[in-house]
Design a protein around this nucleic acid. Structure first.
Length: 138
DNA sequence: GCCAACGTTGGC
DNA sequence: GCCAACGTTGGC
């Protein structure tokens, strides 16, 4: 079991959109970055991820689960790009903002802080636990 | 809305 | 294979 973080602009695709998809989940398509794609290839069904709102809110808002492994991204003919399927599991009771993360020295090494532009990234088990605790769902 | 950081593209 | 130019992202 591994942990991940998925970033999205809520104005394009937000947590509420994800929740609306229910058990069916949604293709995490449109990723055009090799690092992000490579992480998606490492994902397994059942892996968990944080759903992060970029731009205005800048906060982890919920938990998702990988429900389909990496496969061709249907939004492009370019065979290089792949996507996974994810479904919403539950929201955080307390949203954990980027400021909260930066304020906690245990989270200072997160990719979210170090490389803010990477849209799909791994999260360590320790970071996962800390954020779940702070988020009120541990 | 601006700008810095980063990744990708394409000419050489 | 290098590097300059360009486009995009996301924090501020």
């Amino acid at each position: 079991m591994r942990y991940w973080l998925f970033k999205s602009e809520p104005s394009v695709w937000g947590w509420n959109d994800q929740v609306a998809k229910g058990e069916t989940g949604e293709e995490w398509d449109g990723v055009r970055n090799y690092q992000a794609r490579n992480f998606m290839r490492e994902m397994s069904v059942g892996d968990l991820g944080f759903f992060y709102h970029s731009q205005k809110e800048k906060a982890v808002v919920g938990i998702v689960e990988v429900c389909r492994e990496a496969h061709a991204d249907s939004t492009t003919d370019d065979a290089r790009w792949e996507c996974v399927g994810i479904k919403a599991i539950k929201p955080l009771k307390t949203h954990i903002t980027l400021d909260d993360i930066k304020a906690d020295p245990r989270l200072a090494e997160m990719i979210l802080v170090k490389n803010s532009r990477l849209s799909v990234q791994p999260v360590t088990a320790e970071e996962w636990q800390i954020i779940c605790t702070l988020g009120g769902i541990a």
